[in-house]
């Protein structure tokens, strides 16, 4: 392949690193969720956007929250475990059961996110892509097939409006 071929091909995914991170995600998830192997996993993230005005400097800042998102088709349950880009640890799991939630839908604008309203008070918007390169902000994992499966589950089994 020539120089231009390599340029147009785009960045190459380090599949070994991706596999290792997928394994770490599984270990963390199973550590926090009972019968964790009953769930399939993807990496997702939340974006918390806020505006600031510090005198002559103003704008908006985005806080990224990393998530391990597990879903169980039989029990129609999504379990979300907060984590960090290097998967060095995680927080407590939060469960979203189809029968208990108020709403669940996919939002296309302003961002492509899976939105769940557990009740009227708040919601969670889960963003997910097949691969994100910035390891400082996101977990480095390739998940094209898993994301397609999650999308199919969310739209066909978990959608509620």
């Amino acid at each position: 392949m020539g120089l231009f071929g390599k340029l147009f091909k785009g960045p190459e995914i380090d599949m070994e690193k991706s596999r290792a991170n997928a394994e770490k995600m599984r270990v963390l998830f199973n550590h926090m969720v009972e019968n964790g192997d009953d769930y399939k996993l993807i990496f997702g993230y939340t974006e918390d956007v806020s505006r600031f005005n510090y005198g002559f400097v103003h704008g908006s800042k985005t806080k990224i929250g990393n998530l391990i998102v597990g879903w169980n088709k039989e029990s129609k349950t999504i379990a979300v475990v907060p984590t960090v880009p290097d998967l060095s640890g995680c927080g407590e799991a939060t469960y979203y059961r189809y029968n208990d939630i108020l709403k669940a839908y996919r939002n296309k604008y302003p961002t492509d996110a899976f939105v769940i309203y557990p009740d009227k008070k708040g919601y969670i918007a889960i963003n997910a892509y097949d691969w994100l390169e910035d390891e400082k902000l996101y977990v480095y994992v390739s998940q094209e097939k898993e994301l397609a499966e999650f999308t199919e589950f969310f739209m066909n089994s978990f959608y509620k409006k």
Binding site: Y54, G55, G89, G91
Partner: peptide, 25 residues
């Protein structure tokens, strides 16, 4: 400015928002 505001926010809210964190096994 952001650093100062974060410190002030932590002083006011205290450690009430401590989340439980688990290290990788």
């Amino acid at each position: 400015v952001d650093g100062i505001l974060e410190k002030i926010k932590n002083l006011i809210t205290g450690n009430n928002n401590k989340t439980v964190w688990h290290e990788f096994p």
